[in-house]
């Protein structure tokens, strides 16, 4: 269980990283915290020719607030955002969901943007980004662009990121007055990937419910009427299948039940 050989580039500026990405494209892989990539390397399921370490690029550091948005740069580790003193006030959903990511010992190294880039269908951060309607800032030699969360996750572990791009930052909207948030997750063990996770954002008019662990990517739905029938319809439409840990039917049931609980709690939090 040892990685295949690769070149390693410790990029010290964004431009350097862009250059290597432009030259190597799909043969390059960006490494930040490495908490998901390194095991994939060790199992030889990921086989980049070049690994670009972006953790020494000064431009990619920091958590910033701007325009009622939390901007998290690519170097920011999950533990750093979780320890950010303003988090619970600015974005309660993240404060609720992030302790469910892996364990302390992986959040200390894993980055926020790295989790978004990996796009694991049962991960918490892509779910939150989608539920909150955040966006991803990508950059390359060609320039910079922003992609909304709803357009970013395109399939199983696949995203709108082009091979020559890296994620510079992700942006989570701050809590707005009158919003309520809730997060629920069911996993086999503490810290495991979710069988089903639900994130809800309640406003005066409606509730956004996002679910992960079910389809090939996180899925969000706007509910005017969070009736059992509406949830059942949502659950039945989800494209899910049986795996080692749960049946498709079980996951749909959890979407209905946890979904309802999450929506109710988000509404209560609004009040």
């Amino acid at each position: 269980m040892k990685p295949a050989p690769f070149d390693y580039v410790r990029a010290e500026s964004l431009a350097e990283a862009h250059d290597v990405l432009a030259a190597e494209g799909g043969d390059a892989a960006v490494i930040a915290g490495g908490q998901s990539l390194v095991p994939l390397l060790s199992m030889r399921m990921a086989r980049p020719k070049v690994l670009i370490d972006i953790m020494h690029i000064a431009e990619l550091d920091g958590i910033a607030m701007d325009n009622n948005t939390i901007r998290v740069s690519a170097r920011v580790r999950q533990a750093e955002l979780l320890a950010w003193p303003d988090l619970a006030v600015r974005q309660p959903l993240l404060a609720q969901a992030m302790p469910w990511i892996g364990h302390w010992q992986t959040r200390s190294r894993g980055t926020v943007c790295g989790s978004i880039a990996l796009a694991d269908p049962s991960a918490e951060l892509p779910l939150c980004l989608l539920a909150l309607g955040g966006e991803v800032t990508l950059s390359s030699k060609q320039g910079r662009r922003s992609v909304e969360a709803g357009d970013f996750f395109t399939g199983l572990m696949s995203t709108a990121r082009r091979d020559d791009e890296l994620i510079e930052q992700v942006s989570f909207p701050c809590r707005r007055p009158g919003e309520g948030f809730a997060f629920r997750e069911f996993a086999r063990r503490h810290g495991d990937f979710a069988i089903v996770a639900c994130a809800a954002v309640a406003t005066e008019k409606s509730v956004q419910l996002a679910v992960s662990g079910v389809a090939d990517r996180p899925v969000v739905r706007d509910f005017d009427d969070a009736s059992d029938a509406a949830l059942a319809a949502f659950a039945s439409e989800l494209d899910t299948r049986d795996d080692l840990h749960a049946t498709a039917e079980y996951r749909r049931m959890l979407v209905r039940e946890l979904g309802r609980q999450t929506i109710e709690e988000a509404r209560r939090c609004r009040a």
């Binding site: 069911f186 086999r188 840990h245 749960a246 049946t247 039917e249 079980y250 049931m253």
Partner: peptide, 11 residues
């Protein structure tokens, strides 16, 4: 006795 197995029995 996995949750999915037991939930199916409950339901």
């Amino acid at each position: 006795l996995t949750p999915a197995k037991l939930a199916a029995l409950v339901h």
